[in-house]
Amino acid sequence: MIEIKGLVKRFGDFTAVDGVSFSVARGEVLGFLGPNGAGKSTTMKMITGFLTPTAGSARVGGHDVATEPVLVKRSIGYLPEGAPAYPDMTPESFLRFIADIRGVRGTERKRRIEQVVARVHLEGVMRQSIDTLSKGYKRRVGLAAAILHDPDVLIMDEPTDGLDPNQKHEVRTLIQEMAATKAIILSTHILEEVDAVCTRAVIIARGRIVADGTPETLRARARHHNAVALTVRTDGRSDAIGAVRSELQRLPGVLGVEDASIVNGKASFVVMPKGGQSIVAEVSALARSKGWNVDELRVEPGRLDEVFRAITQSSAATPATARTAAA
């Protein structure tokens, strides 16, 4: 549904987006991650036809946004950052305006508006001016406007930013409900959101894609992926702690043991595997054979925020060093 090739956007000397390419198929929910100013919003603005790319192309549903912008815009539902809407209008008149401009008329217009209003729960505020609505309601008005024409492609810039946990959950449920029939791109800062709704995550830093994969494959890049956290009751005997540590270190497949901490007579270890292999069976067998009093044994899946930090910070450092070298 969405094909992006070598997309570049420069503002004067500043390159906001630097050769971004990816494609999104129907049924995919692509989470767009990156630090502030990484180029997420700029990329979305180019796909939706708001900004003109400096180079590269964006095609939506087979139409190029540069040559057939109106056709592209017709097939996209777009929620810009902050969900802008005309503040003096009511949700009712605003949604009617959106329907009119998208060619949804008459009884069809009435039906569609009723449908989306029920879907995002706007019933109570339809005749209040948008100005007076809370942030959560404003976001819902924007969402309703974006999905009113049942678009094939849905692009949302930080759809849950500034919402309370219940509202966030509602928006995520809504996205999950629509995911099967649409191609969806959403940008976010919240990594748990990627786990909750996205089938794929693209991490962007300094205008370039630095990682692209399912949340699981990204997590596999975490340093702690498949590490085993083990807590053993030692009753404060330091020689026991040392014994456990050396036994663990001798296990095949174990790279090292770190983070030994002792709280209330319990010693916690993090056992790091060699090359991300699974070592939980070995650790558990060892604990049983040695008769350790195990309080907790748990596999670390690897944390996305750790991967995010590692990837975006290392890639941020590279161009900077390159520039210093050139100067």
């Binding site: 708001f50 109106v70 815009k73 017709r74 810009p80 802008p84 401009i101």
Partner: peptide
Amino acid sequence: QGTIELLLTLPI
């Protein structure tokens, strides 16, 4: 108000 982004991404 940022509505220009809304207006110019409508199919007109």
